[in-house]
């Protein structure tokens, strides 16, 4: 099942590589221009459940890796097939300096909070996102805090040591 979908994606889109990785997992790598159309393609080919959008900071390569995880809802109400077991890991990269990609909200409604979080934590700009406002954090950071060059310990030391101790 996953093999067939992988082949179909490779045939339908240019510059895309798909390989099965481990049990019931398909890894698809694509460039950022074709990611949104692949998402739409997969939604129409029964991988219609966006489980997660994640990001990995590949600091040595100077790139941010965006990861879309897709599963499949059930075809019938009470029969479990092979298709539902599969997870598709769709990846693309954006540059660390100017990370920008189109929003996936029009394909999956629940992409909204995921993209909002990635904008806040990794500084990725999602083109067309209606509210790229802070989700969790209260203030702006010079470096988005989930990037690898943001040193949590260093930040805590500087922030907390500037607060006078109770005894002083």
């Amino acid at each position: 099942m996953l093999n067939e979908i992988g082949k179909q994606i490779e045939q339908s889109f240019a510059g895309v590589s798909a390989e099965t990785g481990g049990e019931y997992r398909l890894k698809v790598e694509a460039d950022k221009e074709s990611v949104l159309s692949i998402l739409g393609f997969l939604k129409n080919h029964s991988y219609d459940h966006l489980a997660l959008i994640s990001c990995v900071d590949r600091i040595e390569a100077g790139q941010l890796e965006l990861v879309y995880l897709l599963n499949s809802y059930m075809e019938s109400d009470d029969r479990y097939g092979e298709r539902e077991k599969g997870t598709i890991i769709l990846k693309t990269t954006v540059s660390r300096e100017d990370p920008e990609i189109g929003t996936a909200i029009h394909v999956f409604q629940n992409a909204e909070p995921y993209e909002r979080e990635l904008h806040e934590m990794f500084g990725i700009d999602f083109d067309g996102h209606p509210r790229q406002i802070p989700l969790f954090l209260e203030k702006d950071y010079a470096i988005p805090p989930f990037r690898k060059d943001f040193d949590t310990r260093d930040y805590v030391e500087k922030e907390l040591e500037s607060i006078p101790a109770v005894e002083d």
Binding site: H49, L50, Y73, M74, Y80, K85, Q109, N110
Partner: peptide, 24 residues
């Protein structure tokens, strides 16, 4: 529910027996 990534009770309250313990 499907379009918003609903799982668990949100989805099962609409009749779909989607439960990872059965699915995978």
């Amino acid at each position: 529910a499907r379009n918003m990534g609903g799982t668990g009770q949100v989805l099962r309250a609409t009749g779909m027996k989607y439960d990872i313990r059965k699915v995978e």
